[in-house]
Every structure is written in C-alpha cells, then in structure tokens.
Amino acid sequence: MNMRFFAVMMMGVVLMTSCVKKKKEAVQPLDTSAGSEMVHAVAVKKALQANAYTYLLVSEGDQDYWIAVDKMEPEVGGTYFFADAMEMKEFKSNDLDTIFASVFFVQKLSTTKDASTMSMKNPHGTAPGRQSVDQDESISVAPAEGGITIASLFENKADYSGKDVIVSGKVVKVNNGIMGRNWVHIQDGTNADGSYDLTLTTDAEVAVGDVVTMQGTVALDKDFGAGYFYDVIVESATVK
C-alpha cells in the first residue's frame, strides 16, 4: 500500500515538473548544403506573434522549421521566398516564453522569387558600412554634455577606437535578445558621407521612437560571425 502511494506521488511530481518546464519547439534544421545564395520557397503552417518578431513554422519540401522575421501579418498557407538566413540554436524568446531548438532569422520575406532583394549578408545592414534603415531627415538630436555626434564618430573612428563615447539619438530600430544582447540603431540627424545610422549593443531595453543618450566602447571592423560585421559599433552601452 505504501509503495503504491509512493508511486502515485512520484508520478505527480513528474507531471508537475513537466508542466512548469518552458515549452521547447524542436524541428529538423534547415538544409543549407546547396549554398547560401539559394532561394528558399516556404509555405507558412503556423505564426506566433511577439513584440518585435513574427515566428513562422514553415515547410519546405519534406522539412518543417522555424523562421523569424520583422513583425508582419502572414497568410497561413501562403508561399513566401527568402535567400540565406542566420540560424540561432537554443534561442529563447522571452515574449513567448519559448525556447526554439533552431530558428532562422530572415531579414526580408518576399512573395516573389527575386533573390536580389533578399540578401542577408548582414542582418543589420546590407553590407559593411551600409544601413538597414533609411535616414529619417526629420530627426535632429543635439549631443549630450561630453558627447559627440554620429557623424563625428564615423569621420574620426580611428581616434575613438577602444574608447568610451557618449552618443545621443532617436531609436529607429531594435533587435532584442540576439546573441545574448540587444541591438539598437540610433540616428541624430548628422551624416558622414552616407553613414548616419549607429548600432549599439546593450542589456538595456529601449523602444523605437525613444530619444536616448548612451555610453559605450567603440569597436572597429567587428565581426561577430553569421554576417554580423560592423565597421563601427558601440558595445556594452548603458543608458545615461
């Protein structure tokens, strides 16, 4: 009788433990053996909406896998196209309280098979030194006390390499929780020969539209792998 009671209790503990474990989405990884330039045609099977991203369970041939794109309203059952993508393994979405065994971050999903518009060589910019967002010419943010403009940073980047700087600007794009940090793009209205958008990595949470002053360390020619290359980036930034 005691042994039976113990067995029932142990089964209850197992069930309770399984209930509180975070959901984990496990799927077969994407076959990229054909090369990074191939165009993937996928059918959407399921969509999960988070704050900044839409996570899509898609099928391609006999494979099912997850991709993440900037927030959108996809057509479930619809067909979309993308070129190469960046895989993140064991990626946790705090918004969904879900761990994806594998998810591919896609910069642009298209309804047409035009590979030339879907490059993901740099998830935060189409090439080193180029911005992934257009310049907002309505932005005009003056430097904070002791701070510099974005144009000054780009124009004199060698002088600032490895040094702490203070920059102010309006947040125009945010990618949270990538590689264990948040990626913030700011603009202040200045422009140095086409360089107007500055990326900072931070643990702080900011939103698009916020006007912020941040301090961090300048790094040059930073290559994080998976297409994350920056000629200028401010790392470990904090909001002042």
Rank of each mutant, 00 (worst) to 15 (best):
S116K: 13
H124P: 13
I99E: 06
N182T: 05
Y65K: 00
D64N: 06
L153E: 00
V218M: 13
S152Q: 11
T111H: 13
M179Q: 10
L48P: 00
V239L: 07
D64V: 04
S116D: 15
T149S: 09
D95H: 03
A101E: 09
M214A: 05
K222V: 07
A151Q: 04
K21A: 13
E75D: 05
I139Q: 11
E137Y: 11
G35Y: 10
S102R: 01
A192V: 12
K89P: 02
K45M: 01
G189H: 07
F5V: 12
I233L: 13
E87L: 00
E145K: 15
P123M: 07
N51Q: 10
V212S: 13
I148F: 01
G125F: 08
M38R: 15
K173M: 08
M118F: 09
K170C: 07
D114Q: 15
E37T: 12
M118I: 11
D95I: 04
Q28M: 02
D97P: 14
D97V: 10
S152K: 10
T79W: 14
S132W: 01
V206F: 03
G125S: 05
S195K: 12
Y65C: 00
G227P: 07
V103H: 04
M179R: 00
K113E: 13
F104V: 02
I150E: 10
V133C: 04
D164V: 03
V133P: 02
A7W: 11
S119L: 10
S18Y: 12
A83Q: 11
G35C: 09
A151P: 01
L15Q: 14
V14M: 09
G180M: 07
S36I: 08
D84Q: 06
S236P: 05
F5T: 12
F6P: 07
D188Q: 03
R181T: 08
T213G: 13
M10S: 06
A43V: 13
L48W: 06
S102E: 03
D193A: 01
A226H: 11
Q131N: 15
S33V: 11
T54N: 12
I148S: 01
E235G: 15
N191C: 02
A237Q: 02
N122S: 07
T126G: 12
N175Q: 07
E60A: 10
Y53N: 11
D231Y: 07
P74Q: 06
M88C: 00
Y228K: 08
A7E: 07
I166H: 12
V133H: 05
L153Y: 03
I67G: 03
K170R: 14
V103A: 08
G125Y: 09
A52G: 14
